[in-house]
Design a protein around this nucleic acid. Structure first.
Length: 875
RNA sequence: GCGAAAGUGGCGGAACUGGUAGACGCACUGGAUUUAGGUUCCAGCGGGGUAACCCGUGCGGGUUCGAGUCCCGCCUUUCGCACCA
């Protein structure tokens, strides 16, 4: 055994050992693991080319789950793959004039190589890249099945259009309403596309997220519940007034949805989206309406932007009739009404809705109070109008419906409307169908053929996959597939005449909706096979909170579609979900005269402290002059604060990197990277090695542990060790690995104290075996080598499958307990009592304590005893 | 704007179910070893006070014998908002 800890040597030995065993290849029903399967998986990464420490944190987390569960006796499988389609490859293509396929595949190779030193337990035999035809053909196949069942359908969609580059822009590519490359003001444009009817599953998606999925974080469940957004309300029709009838050339009605039918008598205007047919018809007649529609057509489609923009409106000059009073109500076009949500129209009740109030106030529309509070606080909301009263209350000014409470009013009005055929109760979801068409090259081709004679024709299953040509290089001016005759030209499967292929590709969320099922059978000749039934549903899914809604909702939806096609038997893909936090890093900059920031790498900066350890200033090493501390930020290239694993691992080893990213903070929260803190963890591993080296003979020759013969000092240390273990096992289960690392540090500190006692050898032998196995999931290399060197492998087997240690009952028991004594809830003393002492004796001992007596200057009113913890004396 | 979280020493954080605030580590200070730097080891380390003690978990209220933890109202930061992944 070497005297000095040499991480490079240790890690080479351990990895060689695992490679020789092919240690992470998983197979179904492996008889070595009678407890059954455990499938743990991290959300697949986008192959951007560089792995930073943040990735390492995420996959270390995954790896700790793997090793802990395997040590607990499960047949664990953890795969890895690549979310290989998407926009960044096209941007790289524009920048570097390299085909996205080539760039992506080179990145995958790079990243895979960067994973190697970390010693992750990935089963690489299951690797999947979503840009491989063998994968995306099944996106196409399932899409065809969805077309057949009607889950997939064609409809127009609104996109961001860059009029200079003549291309559709992603929301990300719209900066302040302008195209990021051209600078042109972005316009909304309507084009046809494909949708998946996720709303068909709204009720089931909602029900399970509310009452099932108990292995998911509650905040994720809440976010999904709110995203689906079920609301009970009424659909109400306002029949066209003669002017509207004339313009629309029909006697229809303007339909709205509201959850506040009780306020119907307060509806003083109607607001429609700028794209609503009535607005468009009015625009043909009135130039000012047309101008307003055009104004609304500028600007982006993002909801956050729409919701924060100034509320603007324009009277259309048209009217509809109130369904119950028959009074004409003015129709306005408004920029805050969304065409894609509900009916694209709302009734405006300014007295009882803040947004309507703001709108009415600005446009001098009438405000009519129709609800008063039950307490009388808002009985009189007359002019001057200050605010809307949006709480539930009692109806007023509502004819025969006055004097009713909210629900009674809604019920009565709904009945009245239904009698007239002008409305009914209805459930409305906020959730919208999923538009999957992207006017982009680097994605799964949508398997559709356009024929002049037959129209839109699906590609026959036997012709799948529709292979994406891999040699095209986008130049920023639209989808290069539109110019690629080899791809475009085809024959119509129905009439056999020449036809054109669809050039839109699928949203990359399609790729990530089921890859985790393909990992189970990556070489299957169908979409999935029986092996998926063995591994799925996944036991532990790990990924960022940013995916709380979209990806996780799409994956749940996709699973249900597959279930309804008879492909899988389960309805939910992920039993447990863990949302990991981001790794952040310090950043430093200097500003030049023009306010332009120059960002320094942390390594170029020296932090200075005062004598109390408070950081006072940071200076650049190059000139000794101050730089500005920019705080702790997300790692990003532009801020030069990306921590790269390569050089760190070379200096300190993968185990230090792994242990530090686990130690830095709770795994579900963001944590900053710190070089010096990481070195502290390295010191711990060095200390561990040195301790094992110094005590190797004592451990090797230790007699068996006899608890009764330990002196009281060693007994106490043994109690500590097993308490730390007890806590660590709890923390392993709740995925709080930062405190597991702390526990191993405490164990080493305790063993260090024990080692001074000449009789400690049996305890050291037990303690080190506990310590190594507890530490192993975080730092497998050094744990493996020490395990072998100290002879534990011969006794307990390879560390990969050595069972997790369990705390001994005889160690957790104590003869004496230290109790805290409080007076009126404030800590005033401590007493030591026998473990079996009864409550009366304990209370007496507490009252007898001299520190306590000082504060008991009034009669004792009550004494509260919390078993094993404290006594509180109330005076 | 809407939805979801987070806020504890100089720093990262600990305190699982209301019950000893600050475990473990970093930084810093003093000392030992070393020619020196680094390493290693020992001790100290929330604020105030000679002390007894007092004050302290973003801010303001409340519940409780007892609140970092529960409730109400604010402030700040982070994530998501449907074409970034």
């Amino acid at each position: 055994m070497d005297e000095i800890y040499d991480p490079a040597a240790v890690e080479a030995v351990a990895q060689q050992h695992w490679r020789a065993l092919d240690a992470y290849r998983s197979k179904e029903n492996d008889p070595r693991f009678p407890k059954g399967k455990f499938y743990v998986c991290s959300m697949l990464p986008y192959p951007s080319g560089k792995l930073h420490m943040g990735h390492m944190r995420n996959y270390t987390l995954n790896d700790v789950v793997y090793r802990f569960m395997r040590s607990s006796g499960y047949n664990v499988m953890t795969p890895m793959g690549w979310d290989a389609f998407g926009l960044p490859a096209e941007n790289a293509a524009i920048d570097k004039k390299v085909a996205p396929a080539k760039w992506t595949r080179a990145n995958i190779a790079d990243m895979k190589a960067q994973f190697a030193p970390m010693g992750f337990a990935f089963d690489w035999s299951r690797e999947v890249a979503t840009c491989d035809p063998s994968y995306y053909r099944w996106n196409q196949w399932l899409f065809l099945q969805m077309l057949k069942s009607g889950v997939a359908y064609r409809k127009t969609q609104i996109v961001n259009w860059d009029p200079i580059d003549n291309t559709v822009l992603a929301n990300e590519q719209v900066v302040d309403g302008k195209g990021w490359r051209s600078g042109a003001t972005v316009e909304k444009r309507e084009i046809p596309g494909y949708y998946l009817a996720i709303t068909r599953y709204a009720e089931e998606l909602l029900e399970t997220v509310k009452t099932g999925l108990d292995g998911w974080p509650t905040q994720v469940r809440a976010m999904q519940e709110n995203w689906i957004g079920r609301s009970e309300g009424c659909e109400i029709s306002f029949p066209f007034a003669p002017d509207t009838r004339a313009v629309m050339e029909t006697d229809g009605a303007l339909k709205v949805f509201t959850t506040r039918a009780d306020t119907l008598f307060g509806a003083t205007f109607l607001a429609v989206a700028a794209e609503h047919p009535i607005a468009l018809a009015a625009g043909k007649r009135a130039p000012r309406v047309a101008a307003f529609i055009e104004e609304c057509a500028r600007g982006a489609v993002m909801e956050a932007e729409l919701a924060t923009q100034e509320k603007k409106g324009m009277a259309t000059g048209l009217h509809a009739l109130h369904p119950l009073t028959g009074q004409p109500v003015e129709i306005w076009a408004a920029n805050y009404v969304l065409m894609g949500y509900g009916e694209g129209a709302v009734m405006g009740v300014p007295a009882h809705d803040e947004r309507d109030f703001e709108f009415a106030h600005k446009n001098r529309l009438p405000i009519v109070q129709v609800v008063k509070s039950k307490t009388g606080a808002y009985d009189d909301v007359r002019e001057p109008w200050i605010a809307a009263y949006s709480d539930y209350g009692i109806t007023v000014n509502s004819g025969e419906f006055s004097g009713l409470e909210f629900q009674a009013a809604v019920d009565a009005i709904a009945v009245a409307l239904e009698k007239k055929g002008l409305g009914k109760k209805r459930i409305q979801y906020r959730l919208r169908d999923w538009g999957i068409s992207r006017q982009r090259y680097w994605g799964t081709p949508i398997p559709i053929i356009h024929c002049d004679a037959c129209g839109v024709v699906p590609v026959p299953e036997k012709d799948l996959p529709v292979v994406l040509p891999e040699d095209l290089v986008p130049d920023g001016s639209g989808n290069p597939l539109n110019k690629d005759e080899r791809f475009l030209a085809c024959t119509c499967p129905q009439c056999g005449k020449g036809a054109r292929r669809e050039t839109d590709t699928m949203d990359t969320f399609v790729d990530s909706s089921w890859y985790y099922m393909r990992y189970c059978c990556p070489d299957a000749s169908s979409m999935i096979d029986g092996r998926t039934d063995y591994w799925m549903p996944m036991d532990q899914y790990i990924g960022g909170i940013e995916h709380a809604v979209l990806h996780l909702l799409y994956a749940r939806f996709w699973t249900k579609v597959m279930r309804d096609l008879g492909l899988v038997k389960f309805s939910e893909p992920f039993k447990q979900l863990f949302t990991q936090g981001m790794l952040l890093a310090h950043c430093y900059y200097r500003e030049d005269a023009n306010g332009k920031k120059r960002w320094f790498y942390p390594a170029e900066v020296e932090q200075q402290f005062d004598e109390r350890g408070t950081p006072i200033s940071a200076v650049a090493k190059e000139d000794g002059k101050p730089v500005i501390y920019g705080g702790i930020e997300k790692m990003s290239k532009s801020k030069n604060n990306v921590v790269e694993p390569g050089s760190f691992i070379e200096r300190f080893g993968a185990d230090t990197a792994r242990a530090f990213v686990m130690f830095a903070g709770p795994p579900d929260q963001s944590a900053p990277w710190s070089d010096s803190s990481a070195e502290g963890v390295h010191r711990f591993l060095k200390k561990l090695w040195a301790f094992c080296y110094q005590n190797r003979e004592r451990i090797a020759t230790a007699p068996a542990l006899v608890v009764a013969s330990l002196d009281s000092g060693l007994k106490k240390i043994r109690h500590q060790l097993h308490s730390f273990l007890h806590q660590a096992l709890f923390d392993f289960q709740r995925i709080q690995y930062n405190t597991v690392v702390s526990a191993t540090m405490k164990m080493l500190n305790a063993l260090d104290t024990a080692a001074e006692n000449p009789a400690a050898a049996p305890l050291l032998r037990e303690g080190v075996s506990i310590l190594l196995r507890t530490l192993y999931p975080m730092t497998p290399h050094v744990a493996h080598v020490l395990w072998v060197e100290l002879g534990y492998a011969k006794e307990l087997g390879d560390l990969l499958d050595a069972p997790m240690p369990q705390p001994a009952a005889d160690a957790l028991q104590q003869d004496e307990l230290e109790l805290v004594v409080q007076v009126n809830g404030k800590l005033r003393g401590r007493v030591i009592v026998a473990a079996q002492a009864d409550e009366t004796a304990i209370k007496e001992a507490a009252l007898a304590d001299e520190h306590v007596r000082k504060f008991v200057d009034k009669p004792v009113r009550k004494v509260i005893y919390v078993k094993g913890k404290l006594v509180n004396i109330v005076v």
